[in-house]
Design a protein around this nucleic acid. Structure first.
Length: 564
RNA sequence: GCCCCUGUAGCUCAGUCUGGAUAGAGCGACUGCCUUCUAGAUUUAGAAGAUGAAGAAAGCAGUAGGUCGCAGGUUCGAAUCCUGUCGGGGGCACCA
């Protein structure tokens, strides 16, 4: 139908002496703010500018040239101010949209834009020997969703967890454990105990020298250090995997900084050969001052490596191994400069694929004073606690509404509701914005929340379950306003999904899903589905709603519930 | 000091990339939509309550709430673009 609008416009514009390509016209077509103003609209300001005419007048002139008498799929054309508004035939529109959704089901809205090219999405990436904190929550949820969004556009996605399992901090860990660690305590609650040690060692400056020497030993292959490191890693990974299982997030690859130990030497060599390295204050650096990016530190004075070195090595190795078309790093925005440096260095090294590396940065969770959380100072909120709190709150809410429920069912539903609250609560925010952490946000289930979305789905499901009438795909003569609003919203899902991909922005999907659920609930309130003459059509509409909402939720990393 | 992000309703935020129709949501506040009772009588008033029921109130409708940080500029037109300025956050060499 949009195509028809474009053809009509193209012909009319020609008559007035303006020639635009179909693509140019398509880009200018807008959706009017209200239903009363029509379904598609063409603003005339921008052309009027070029030919020095008043937009209102031009709109009238163009509309007069539209010869084809409005009928068929376009019912009416109106000029309001500088806009030419098109009204579609609602019945045809509805029929097309519903048929399309019900035919394509979970594929509705997806495309094959990616042609199965590979995209690596690196996300979550928690630090070994530290608890899974609020800092990694965003990366985990957003990265997962970005993966789903890209996959929906036909890319082959590799979800990669790049563990922070190497670096000076492990010198600190080993130093702390050797000085005041106890094996029994470690076994009891490994991660929280290791955190205690980490905080303690950071407070005491006299261990700094010793810590660094332990990391040097570790990097040089000292056996005792290696075994301790291995133990920390295994214990941590076990805890992390428990959390991922609860969150329902699956990684294709578990990688880690430690895995690029061998490649690092060759990266340093390569940099030297390409004459990019320079000695500065005893360390090896790449000078990026020309690009306003400062120095990228490659090797410390004591000869050990740094984060940047490992990221360079891993990027090069990954490209060899996977031949990715894009690599997305879902990492906090405080590392923006770091990634700019890495990408620049890769570029200077002559790797043309450097431009396909993207830092999809996210804003930080700030504490209630608006300051950054810091693990080093022991100021963290544990993922485990957030999850457990939200789950127990969800349990209370569910039991309030349904007493006779099996324990197993309660556990299952409470987990799904809690995840919806947490995931949606995070994803609805603009990715790059900082968020002040407020635990109450996750335990509020009304209004613009994840549980509201699940509720709407369950509500729709209940209608279908209770209705025994047979399907007859009859469209009513007159569509109610709320019915048509819902249908229009349904039709917008594909462009929402595409927009989310273009901006790597799950928030687009989150906002769409909320508006969709709102439209559905309005429709539900006003239009009774059962015992109405329109029932068969409305049942189709409810079905289509469920499909589209489910697709949206899946993109966010959530599963809807049939009952809540 | 330099670089990046940011300031929209009491609170939390969309909208800013790509300037256009009355600046939108959610929370909080107030009102109504549910049930029972009493009076009144098809369109009412008061009080109380919540329901184990289901076409699920985890909902819907309405009211109040805005100098889009401030000051200039560009434009027929600015929350949106440009400049300046003030407030908040993050980063800036041996952490990741």
């Amino acid at each position: 139908m949009k195509k028809r609008v474009i053809t009509i416009l193209k012909n009319a514009l020609k008559e007035v002496g303006i020639s635009l390509t179909e693509k140019q016209i398509q880009e200018r077509i807008e959706l009017p703010p209200t239903l009363k103003m029509g379904d598609y609209s063409f603003p005339c300001h921008f052309i009027a500018n070029k030919i020095n005419k008043k937009p209102e007048q031009l709109a009238l002139e163009i509309s007069k040239k539209i010869k084809e008498t409005p009928k068929g799929d376009i019912e009416n054309i109106q000029v309001i101010g500088p806009y030419i508004n098109f009204f579609v035939n609602r019945k045809d529109f509805t029929k097309n949209v519903l048929t399309d959704i019900i035919k394509k089901k979970e594929k509705f809205g997806s495309t094959s834009l990616g042609h199965k090219q590979k995209i690596i999405v690196e996300f979550s990436s928690p630090n070994i020997a530290k608890p899974f904190g609020i800092g990694h929550l965003r990366s985990t949820i957003i990265g997962n969703s970005i993966g789903n969004i890209c996959s929906f556009q036909g890319f082959k996605i590799i979800k990669m967890n790049y563990l922070g399992d190497w670096g000076t901090q492990f010198g600190k860990m080993i130093c702390g454990y050797k000085n005041f660690g106890k094996e029994e305590k470690l076994k009891k609650d490994p991660i929280k105990y290791l955190l205690k040690i980490y905080v303690k060692i950071n407070k005491n400056k006299k261990y700094e020298e010793e810590s660094r020497s332990y990391f040097k030993k570790l990097e040089n292959g000292n056996k005792e250090c290696f075994l301790l490191w291995k133990k920390f890693k295994e214990l941590s990974l076990k805890e992390f995997k428990k959390i991922y299982e609860k969150l329902g997030i699956i990684f294709n690859v578990y990688s880690g900084e430690s895995m690029y130990n061998k490649e690092m030497k060759s990266v340093v060599k390569e940099l030297q050969q390409k004459k990019l390295l320079r000695k500065s204050r005893g360390a090896l650096v790449v000078d990026l001052k020309k690009y306003n990016l400062g120095f990228c530190l490659i090797q410390k004075t004591d000869g050990t490596t740094l984060y940047a070195t490992r990221d360079l090595a891993s990027a090069i190795t990954r490209h060899k191994k996977y031949n990715f078309s894009k690599m997305i790093y879902e990492v906090g925005q405080e590392q923006k400069l770091h990634f700019q440096q890495i990408f620049k260095v890769l570029n200077l090294m002559g790797y043309s694929w450097a431009k396909e590396c993207i830092h999809a940065n996210h804003g930080l969770y700030l504490d209630k004073d608006g300051k950054k959380f810091s693990t080093r100072k022991g100021k963290t909120i544990f993922m485990e606690d957030i999850l457990n709190n939200t789950i127990s709150f969800a349990k209370k809410e569910i039991s309030k509404r349904e007493e006779k429920i099996s324990k197993k069912e309660l556990e299952h539903r409470a987990l799904k509701v809690a995840l919806a609250a947490i995931f949606y609560g995070d994803l609805k925010n603009t990715r790059t914005q900082n968020i002040v952490f407020n635990p109450k946000k996750f335990t509020s289930f009304e209004g613009d929340t994840g549980p509201y979305l699940l509720y709407s789905y369950a509500r729709a499901n209940s209608i279908l379950k209770k209705c025994k009438c047979k399907e007859r795909k009859i469209l009513p003569n007159k569509l109610e306003k709320l019915e048509f609003s819902l249908i229009k919203k349904l039709s917008q899902f594909p462009s929402s999904a595409l927009e989310a991909y273009n901006n790597l922005s799950p928030a687009h999907i989150a906002h769409y899903a909320f508006e969709l659920a709102q439209d559905f609930n309005e429709f539900y309130d006003q239009c009774h589905v059962i015992d109405s003459k329109e029932e068969s059509f409305r049942l189709e509409l409810v079905k289509a709603f469920m499909i589209v909402l489910k697709n949206s939720l899946n993109l966010l990393g959530l599963e809807p519930l049939e009952r809540m």
